[in-house]
Amino acid sequence: MSKTITIDGLTVPFRDGQTIMDAALASGVYIPHLCHNPEFKPHGSCKLCTVNVNGRNAASCTMPATEGLQVLNDTAELNDERRALVQMLFVEGNHLCPSCEKSGNCQLQAVAYYLEMMSPHYNHFYPTREVDASHPGILLDRNRCIYCELCVRASRDADGKNVFGLTGRGMATTLIVNSASGRLGDTTLAVTDKAVQVCPTGALMKKGLAYTVPIGRRIFDHHSIKDVQTGGGHE
């Protein structure tokens, strides 16, 4: 008899060592998330995956599953809080979807669609952030970075290159590039590296693809991120 937890009344099995997020994804239960990717060690920073566990809120991507946990996930209250978090992500950066190549394939946008975010609600910061176009095949646009650290983890753990890092704290956090010049073009980052594939937004993108798949025919134009991430795995 396998061990189980309960998510919104549904019995979900888990193995020792799995987090609530792991167990949920394995059973096709969607918990909204941005900084989590099952291929990498959890970061627990975006807090979108916050669920109510036995009466207390916890990040499901870092919270280990233990026998009999009662988890609330898809509730109006939690989704309201998640929407507010996404709204804050939108106003903290410069997320102007009509001018972004990633639009329609962007997980930040997709989560906003899923949570029915009709406006960013808060006052926009319109921060000034640097764009690094020095790499021949890859564009780094910090305007769209949400500091999920996925490229940092992928470059370190999967590519073994350690190209990216986060520096600073709080509002001063920035994504830096590990080269003497600080420019992407002076690193060994390759277009095929995992770090380039995992960005949930349009911060790290392959050059030259542009609008080969037109707006309106992209994945989240027609499919909810809930179905994409519980059915066909991560994009």
Binding site: F90, N94, P98, P120, Y126, P127
Partner: peptide, 14 residues
Amino acid sequence: ACAITGGIPALRNN
């Protein structure tokens, strides 16, 4: 988008 986020004209904000 412009009424809701500033949109394309807001590209000049920086």
